[in-house]
Design a protein around this nucleic acid. Structure first.
Lengths: 177, 177
DNA sequence: TGGAGATTTCAGTTTTTTCTGAAACTCCAG
DNA sequence: CTGGAGTTTCAGAAAAAACTGAAATCTCCA
């Protein structure tokens, strides 16, 4: 696919961003490309457009599919696989958060629980340390539960909430005050 | 400093987590260590405890200070620098988010603005593509403004909001409905 | 002023991650 | 079957990131 200057810039920047957040450059670039593309692309088109190896595209697409950020589709009369991505930014964001939660936060909660339990049993671990670990655990658990509730809300409602911003705190304050 | 088994496990896990989120292992481990430590530690103690080079500790501490996650303090009668970290998990979280916003989101907003502007001027860039870039920009801008409002709320209020979870949406819905 | 303790810098090494290209595999039409 | 288009796998190359140790710098005090 042909990339105009601004599109290229977007894709490159998105690659950098991905890298800073623990996703490989290629994966992020491919996602950005699919996001801008007017139609599903084949792996080869992607490789050509971004100048990366065909095999790299294959691997990266698999990873994107694992994140739920790319889906394979077929075009009538074409034997090749084509790929596209969600275009709704809110849905994209929710998927990313969901995945990171599943892959990192949830396992961390498990580990922290064990740490806290062991720390409480172990007489040589200072009480303070155990309490601090517990504080981190509780924090993550709270945020996790919050997210599970919020993720179900339809994007427009989420948008409304975000637009309201801190004023939500006042609503809530009044309700309880 | 002596690390008991559970503490060691905590520190190691936190190191892994850091690595997955774009912070070097050492930096994350040092932060975890300072978080658990009962008193400010010297760079040398940190190096010994974590078995990493003294110079690495120096660099990492500087980075942590840059994030606002470690502060230098002095102990009476001791010439060496000692380091400690915030113990309130909410405050730690807010600092991290604040920094990532400043370092990554804000510059990204700038880039996206330019991309969108150029894309609108450039006749060879499809209208669709320009609109999609704009959608990402607007999304990030919204979240950014939201965060700026929310970060000022005192941690206890934030906690309350998180505990309320999705029910906040209903409050808001009723208020407007 | 000099020198010991403390810290930082930085060039080079090690480790980790990412990417490539060739080979292997799959699937289908002829 | 057989051939070719399409895709995946994987061992090794390349690139990027993290880490080390030695030397330079700083700082305080006798």
């Amino acid at each position: 696919m042909d990339l105009t200057r601004p599109m290229e810039r977007y894709v490159v920047h998105w690659g950098e961003m991905g890298a800073r957040w623990g996703v490989s450059r290629s994966v992020a670039q491919i996602h950005a490309l699919l996001y801008l593309a007017p139609r599903p692309l084949t792996a080869e088109e992607i490789a050509d457009t971004l100048s990366i190896a065909r095999s790299n595209v294959s691997t990266s697409l698999k990873e994107l599919q694992g994140w739920g950020l790319a889906t394979m589709v077929h075009v009538l009369g074409d034997r090749r696989d084509h790929f596209e991505t969600e275009k709704d930014v809110w849905k994209i964001a929710l998927k990313i958060v969901e995945q990171r939660k599943q892959r990192e936060i949830d396992p961390t909660l498990g580990t922290l629980e064990q740490c806290v339990r062991e720390a409480e049993e172990d007489p040589s671990t200072p009480r303070d340390a155990a309490e601090r670990m517990a504080a981190v655990h509780d924090f993550l658990a709270n945020v996790s539960v919050w997210y599970d509730q919020v993720k179900g809300l339809p994007p427009p409602v989420l948008q409304k909430l975000v637009r309201l911003g801190a004023r939500v705190a006042q609503f809530v304050g009044r309700k309880r005050g």
